[in-house]
Design a protein around this nucleic acid. Structure first.
Length: 186
DNA sequence: CGGATTTGACCCGCGC
DNA sequence: GCGCGGGTCAAATCCG
């Protein structure tokens, strides 16, 4: 709990400080899972896109967002093979470089309103945890962002939310001019 | 009535 | 080659 063995944030980086302040992140850890191109700006952009905490604070309860990527290279048992090409039944899925970020938040509810609409498409029980793992997907058509929510087996009070992919649309809460806002490259 | 949620079944990759 | 673990889909159900 108070003793972690992972690589902490680069506190020297002002960007991270801003990030921490903007999103009220107490502490956390980040790690890159695919390529080494992962930078602070990516994390910032991702946070801004994926978790609009700044727009929609967690209304359910006092939540302390934390950025943490524990299972990516530390425990292969949790995520097993993350960078697989084709996954699922379809067999033919377009798989490009997708970045994943895990946020560990302290909350009793798993449904954290981050400003986006999610549709649950699966629930699975993890073998090493009594708590199930929920799979969410962005309800927006065309957006292939996936979200994985799981309770910390060690600390049930903590929720580990893993985002995968990048949103190609603005937050539904904030209506913007779609005609004047062309989507970026997928 | 429409949409989201549920739960079981199916599939894939890897290990043994 | 089979089994395990994990991830996804899909039909049925429930809710608003």
């Amino acid at each position: 709990m108070d003793d972690d063995e992972r690589t902490p944030f680069d506190a020297n980086n002002s960007s991270f400080t801003t990030l921490l302040n903007s999103h009220q992140l107490e502490s956390g850890y980040y790690e890159e899972s695919e390529s080494n191109n992962f930078e602070v700006s990516d994390l910032l952009e991702f946070v801004s896109n994926e978790c609009s905490y700044e727009y929609q604070p967690i209304p359910t309860s006092q939540t302390t967002p934390m950025i943490i990527l524990p299972e990516f290279s530390q425990n292969p048992d949790n995520l097993a093979t993350g960078s697989s090409t084709n996954s699922g039944v379809g067999g033919n899925r377009e798989t490009t470089t997708k970045k994943r970020f895990a946020f560990r938040t302290k909350s009793q509810v798993e449904i954290l309103d981050d400003g986006f609409k999610w549709r649950k498409y699966g629930k699975k029980m993890v073998k090493n945890s009594p708590n199930p793992r929920n799979y969410y997907r962005c309800s927006v058509d065309g957006c292939k962002v996936k979200k994985r929510v799981e309770r910390d087996k060690d600390d049930p009070t903590y929720i580990i939310t893993t985002y995968e992919g990048t949103h190609t649309h603005p937050s539904p809460g904030e209506v913007t001019d779609l005609t004047n806002n062309p989507p970026t490259i997928a």
